[in-house]
């Protein structure tokens, strides 16, 4: 474990807890894309298949359970909670799941480290995580209003993966044989997707104006 990875995990943890807390306290999911949340639940499910087979550390197991639990709770709130579901904007959140899931699945079947079920599922989860934010970014551009909790959520989500890139660079230089080029490419693509959001986020923060994404 290095400081970059710990900071990345903590940032990721805070991002999902910020979102869960927002939905739980104000009983609203305005501005939140259910599609993205469902994709994240799928990412964690396919990423953590080894949850009960390979024990890495208490930290690893606890964090996996938190990510699984929080992502499914968020999906449950938006789909099932009698008050929260009313604030879900299903007319705007129209990104088709299969436009994202199918290409990632095909890519995982073509490009992977090893052709085993677990390995292909793990690779699929990497590709899926890289693009899972798209429905959320599309929704933010459509609704144009970004309440700052949602802005913080997206910002923290992007920051966590950027910290992971620093972690991969660090591990590449400190650990021999640490080569996971698929992870690196997926992680870089993911962070680049946030790049324009980061730009507008910093602009709004610097000029102290409400965050607006260009249509």
């Amino acid at each position: 474990m290095n400081i970059f990875r710990l900071a990345g995990d903590m940032t990721h943890l805070v991002s999902v807890l910020v979102l869960l807390l927002k939905i739980h306290t104000i009983k609203s999911c305005a501005g939140i894309s259910l599609k993205t949340q469902e994709l994240y639940a799928l990412v964690f499910t396919t990423r953590y298949l080894d949850l009960f087979t390979d024990y890495i550390s208490l930290y690893n197991t606890v964090m996996k359970l938190i990510f699984l639990g929080s992502s499914f709770s968020i999906v449950w709130y938006i789909r099932r909670h009698k008050i929260v579901r009313r604030s879900y904007d299903k007319d705007q959140d129209t990104f088709r799941h299969y436009f994202i899931v199918l290409p990632c699945l095909v890519l995982a079947l073509l490009i992977h480290h090893k052709f085993t079920f677990k390995e292909v599922m793990w690779t699929f989860s990497l590709y899926l995580e890289a693009v899972a934010i798209l429905p959320q970014l599309v929704l933010l551009q459509r609704t144009r209003n970004i309440d700052n909790l949602t802005g913080q959520y997206v910002f923290l989500l992007g920051a966590y993966r950027a910290l992971y890139i620093l972690n991969w660079i660090y591990r590449h230089y400190t650990e021999p044989h640490y080569v996971h080029w698929i992870t690196w490419i997926a992680g870089i693509v993911q962070t680049l997707l946030y790049a324009d959001f980061f730009y507008y986020y910093f602009q709004s923060w610097k000029n102290n104006v409400k965050l607006q994404l260009p249509a």
Partner: peptide, 10 residues
């Protein structure tokens, strides 16, 4: 056979 590369990251 290289050891199963442990996925120790989240």
């Amino acid at each position: 056979e290289e050891d199963e590369d442990i996925k120790d990251e989240l």
